[in-house]
Design a protein around this nucleic acid. Structure first.
Lengths: 177, 177
DNA sequence: CGAATATGGTAAGGCGGCTTATTATCTGGA
DNA sequence: TCCAGATAATAAGCCGCCTTACCATATTCG
């Protein structure tokens, strides 16, 4: 995920909006700050995980399995909950299994399914990483008061509301500028 | 960029924090909402750009050059402002040039440098895409009032403040939980 | 019951980033 | 002045995700 390093000043956006009447400077400013900041946060965590030989995908799988370590989960479920394709999940589990952090088991109910279970060494490994991870999460939000955190969550909810429309095909030109 | 599809409920986070004392549920909740939402927004725009045969990287280069179409920019500057490595920028400009959207020119001042300029067809191409892009940006923020957008920008600023600390190596265990 | 369809997992190959190493050119100090 | 180090661009190869195509097994329905 990459984006501009510097977000343009509001005045620049205003200037650009003369050439592009569809450009709403206030919306663009919020948009750029949101995406730039979150991409930097994401990148920082990606870097931290890579120090433990984990990609975001591998880490997510371990975290999902760790929620209920006794209950193995099949690959398709893991893929869906991790937002990756089933093919990608095959690869993630391949490497996790190679490293001894998870293992595949045949399902008794459905012979198509393989269930993935966290091994004890996988659990140990994750427990070595999570405290540092959690401390970083706490730190990244440390400048926000409890109220501000609630506000952030609610703003994200409002952005979510618009997502289906954004994902649609070419937008009709709004009749109102 | 990928993350959990569903963000755990606050109660679940609270429950988890019993096992992991470093886990601050309120910080984690804000963190997960921020990253999930922005990754979905990012993905939606990625999809939209791919309909025009553009990756985020290719698009960013065109946008940067379009800010001042008469002034060509060297690859290292483009790379720095786009947050990609110079090697990646070489590849981006390769394909953009192959598609006739930009062209390389030798710098008169410094024989190491190549300056990249938007071609007229590149500019035309971009101008066909930008209105739709801007409309989507407006739409994604349409549920937020002007005040809420300002709040969002300021919250992102506060998150930015913590970034240097997050990017550092292993965190010392805070003396205060 | 048996065939069409759906679903689970995998393989092969693509794409867009990255790192590392190389070559060309510039610059600054002994 | 000229050499050591910086900087510009590129090449080669890696990695993590994707898409597409495939086979095995389940399920549904005529």
């Amino acid at each position: 995920m990459l984006l501009l390093r510097e977000v343009p000043q509001y005045e620049c956006l205003l200037e650009r909006s003369k050439r592009y009447p569809e450009l709403d400077p206030s919306a663009m400013e919020a948009f750029l700050h949101l995406l730039r900041t979150s991409s930097e946060v994401f990148e920082a965590f990606r870097t931290m995980l890579s120090r433990h030989e984990l990609s975001q995908g591998r880490f997510t799988v371990l975290v999902l399995l760790n929620r209920d370590p006794e209950t193995p989960v099949n690959l398709a479920d893991l893929a869906e909950r991790s937002r990756v394709t089933r093919a990608t999940m095959t690869g993630l589990v391949d490497t996790l299994e190679r490293d001894g952090l998870v293992k595949r088991e045949h399902s008794a109910d459905d012979r198509r399914m393989l269930l993935v279970r966290l091994t004890s060494s996988g659990r140990t490994y994750l427990d070595k990483i999570l405290p540092d991870y959690f401390r970083r999460v706490t730190l990244v939000m440390s400048q926000l008061t409890p109220d501000e955190r609630k506000v952030l969550v609610s703003l994200m909810g409002k952005v979510q509301q618009s997502l289906p429309a954004i994902k649609a095909g070419p937008l009709p030109k709004s009749t109102i500028a």
